[in-house]
């Protein structure tokens, strides 16, 4: 860990200004990821701008019927908030599937979006990694890639530069819920649809998302539609708690007259970002829930998936998890 300066930010605009004036500075909130990365010399910020005192630990009703989550809400407070638990149980369940109670008590919602991959090679500065050191190579492709991506790994030339995954559970639910990320930069505020927030590695895997360096996440908007009646979050991992997903699935449905009226499926642990395909969700629309149609959606969802040896099992596992999640969400087994 390098020596660094520390500033406590006194307001959003002040925080953003500080960040803009020092391009090697970083924001810190819960610190559950950046401190680890600093200890491993993966992140070497010249300054940490502490944003924990900004007034962003809020939950507000929005005019459109949705809910605005302040970026500094902790994961635990979000998951257990009565309005979230009642109206967005998928989000609660996904959050509670992640990390450990201690981590969820510290980690913030904004920080959850910003957490970096758990790729072993990214974390170990003794090995090449294109995400950490662009151009040095990807060790995982030929290496131990059990936790790595099976989808969206190729750039426009069909080359592979990085097979890291985004490790979040919360983000998988946020993607399925079509959340919107509100950010503030030196030139004002903007809103980023969740699907456009994280990105695929392409040939610039060192860039995780579309947030600009001098922008700060202030809130996450949840649309009115929360799918409280038909949802499932399934997380498959190497132990029952405190392990990142090998594969996770968020499924959210609306049923009308026994048919699927609205469908969302998002996969975690399989790509550089939460993996969602509108064309696959379209397959389900107007269908009567059945194993057959779920299997069809699952197969389509994994179309183009590529394993790298240790992670090849994820392709079949993801399909089975999708079928199970849709089955749970529609209570198909009890129908």
């Amino acid at each position: 860990m390098n020596p660094f300066a520390y500033t406590r930010a006194e307001g959003v605009s002040n925080a953003v200004r500080e960040r803009a004036s020092e391009h090697t500075a970083k924001f810190i909130a819960g610190g559950t990821n950046i401190i680890d990365l600093m200890k491993e010399n993966v992140e070497r910020p010249s300054r940490l701008i502490d944003i924990t005192h900004l007034p962003l630990a809020t939950v507000d009703e929005m005019e459109n019927g949705g809910i605005r989550l302040g970026a500094l809400m902790t994961n635990a407070d979000t998951a257990y908030h009565p309005k979230i638990a009642e109206r967005y149980p998928l989000l609660s369940k996904a959050i509670l599937a992640g990390a450990s109670p201690q981590l969820r008590n510290m980690a913030t919602d904004g920080g959850n979006l910003m957490q970096r991959t758990r790729c072993y090679y990214f974390y170990d500065v003794a090995t090449p990694c294109n995400k950490r050191e662009p151009g040095s190579g990807c060790s995982a492709i030929e290496g131990y890639n059990r936790i790595h991506a099976i989808l969206g790994t190729r750039d426009t030339n069909q080359d592979i530069h990085c097979i890291a995954t985004h490790p979040s559970d919360m983000c998988v639910a946020l993607a399925a819920l079509e959340a919107v990320v509100n950010v503030t930069g030196p030139y004002g505020e903007r809103s980023i649809p969740f699907a456009e927030f994280h990105r695929l590695p392409g040939n610039t895997p060192h860039i995780d998302n579309t947030l600009q360096d001098d922008e700060l996440i202030t809130a996450i908007d949840l649309p009115a539609r929360g799918f409280p009646d038909h949802y499932a979050y399934i997380k498959l991992r190497d132990r029952t708690s405190y392990a990142f997903a090998l594969v996770s699935v968020a499924a959210a449905l609306e049923l009308e007259n026994g048919r699927i009226a609205e469908a969302r499926i998002t996969l975690g642990g399989v790509a550089h970002k939460p993996w969602r395909r509108l064309d696959v969700e379209a397959i389900l629309i107007d269908k009567v829930p059945s194993k057959g149609v779920f299997q069809q959606a699952a197969d389509a969802m994994l179309e183009g998936a590529q394993g790298f040896g240790h992670n090849t099992f994820k392709i079949e596992l993801a399909k089975r998890a999708i079928v199970r999640a849709l089955t749970e969400a529609t209570n198909l087994n009890s129908l």
């Binding site: 758990r118 090995t127 131990y144």
Partner: peptide, 23 residues
């Protein structure tokens, strides 16, 4: 888990070296 390309243990922390947790 050793990556034999490097001869190096890659899951060298308690997040990735799994031992049973309470759950």
């Amino acid at each position: 888990v050793m990556d034999h390309q490097f001869g190096r243990i890659m899951n060298h922390n308690l997040a990735e070296y799994h031992v049973a947790v309470n759950a």
